[in-house]
Computed example of a mutant assay.
Amino acid sequence: MPSTSLTDYQVLSDGNFTLRGVPVTGEPQEKTLAFAVPDDMHISTALARRPLLAFKVRPFQDSTLDVIFDGENILSTSFDTSHTRTYWEAVDLSGPLKQHPSTVSIRFLVLNGRARFGDVVMWYQINR
């Protein structure tokens, strides 16, 4: 019998946060958010069923961003200095979620530059 899947989401951050790469301390700034893994989340390597990480970004300088999901780098990208815009990325979470943890950390790490982020949302499919 075929399974039914629905789309669900979690708002990981409703406010804004600004990060700067390698400030005076010599270490890049980061922001850690928590993602509560639902029991019925569909975890697959199939491209059509991958979760989507979405957020607003306003690069004040050319910036490089890494997003670390439970210790695994799921996104590396660069932004040119520009206006606020929305960014979406299909991410493969099958590796970090293979142990079925209940909560995982998502770290936004700016390696260089300076950018403001907001409205971080993880979209995913659940099995019904």
Rank of each mutant, 00 (worst) to 15 (best):
D8Q: 09
D8E: 13
Y9S: 13
Y9F: 14
Q10R: 06
V11Q: 11
L12M: 15
L12P: 11
S13D: 13
D14S: 14
G15L: 03
N16R: 12
R20A: 09
R20T: 14
R20I: 08
G21L: 02
V22C: 00
V24T: 13
T25V: 09
G26A: 02
P28E: 02
P28A: 12
T32Q: 13
L33I: 04
F35L: 12
A36S: 12
A36C: 00
V37F: 01
P38E: 03
D40E: 07
D40M: 02
D40I: 00
D40Q: 02
M41P: 01
T45I: 03
A46Y: 07
A46I: 00
A46L: 11
L47W: 07
L47P: 00
A48S: 12
A48L: 10
R49H: 13
R50E: 09
L52V: 14
L52E: 13
L52I: 15
A54H: 07
A54Q: 14
F55Q: 10
K56L: 09
V57C: 06
V57H: 04
P59S: 11
P59D: 06
P59T: 08
Q61E: 14
D62Q: 12
S63A: 14
T64S: 14
L65H: 08
L65W: 12
L65G: 04
V67E: 05
I68M: 07
F69N: 02
F69C: 05
F69G: 02
D70F: 04
N73H: 05
N73K: 15
I74P: 10
I74A: 03
L75Y: 10
L75I: 04
S76M: 07
T77K: 15
T77A: 07
S78C: 06
D80K: 15
T81H: 10
S82F: 07
S82A: 10
S82M: 01
S82V: 00
T84E: 15
R85Y: 03
R85N: 07
T86M: 10
Y87E: 10
Y87P: 02
W88H: 15
W88R: 15
W88S: 10
W88A: 00
E89H: 09
E89L: 06
V91T: 06
V91W: 03
V91H: 01
S94C: 00
P96R: 08
L97D: 03
K98S: 14
Q99D: 13
Q99A: 12
H100P: 02
P101H: 11
P101V: 08
S102L: 06
V104H: 06
I106V: 15
I106Y: 04
R107N: 11
L109C: 08
L109R: 15
